[in-house]
Amino acid sequence: MSDAPEEITSSSHQNGRWNLWVGFGTLAFAALCLLVWFPRDIGSGFMQQNLTGRTVPGDSFFPILLVALMVPLAALLILSQLRAKRGTGGELVGHISLENLAFLGRCLILTGASLLVMNIVGPSLIWLTNMTGLTTLSGYRAASASFPFDVSGYFFGATLLTCGLIRITRHRLRPSDLLIGAATAAVLILIFDGLLNNIQLPPNADL
């Protein structure tokens, strides 16, 4: 499940700073945890008194231990990277470029838009059928277990997601891709809503 072995990077050491980033990032994370996050978000300290008056490890015992162990490792990483700069050796170095981030951002926006569609279509459909006098429903919640309202949002949202991603991989969208997107959504609806009971497709488990 990883890249083929031959791909092991060649021009690694001019990007060696990425290992420094990892090291310093870890140190910053450890500091943030120990100074800000843990004190506010963990109910008991490193050690605590239990009911019998004995001292036992508290809820922060293990988190502090883990984060504290990160510190020497990160320091080692930084040191070994500084030393390895001139020659070869040292740890494998990776990097995250701006293009990578732009790509991730694009995927996030696409997913967010699809989720928005999932949430909006159902209520809109009900508004529409109420307007035309086909139904007299009090809202989406009341219809969130009746076909087709319960799966309408998912159908359009999932289709949008699949098609959007195909557009990204291929740089264009063929009419047949729309069919594939819709078919994927339809098959998933058939499995989860048709064949199985008490399974809720998005957004129905969060109303």
């Binding site: 978000d41 605590q48 490890p57 508290g58 809820d59 988190p63």
Partner: peptide, 11 residues
């Protein structure tokens, strides 16, 4: 949680 002080690190 391990010590009954409520869940930890949940923001």
């Amino acid at each position: 949680t391990m010590s009954g002080n409520g869940p930890r690190l949940t923001f």
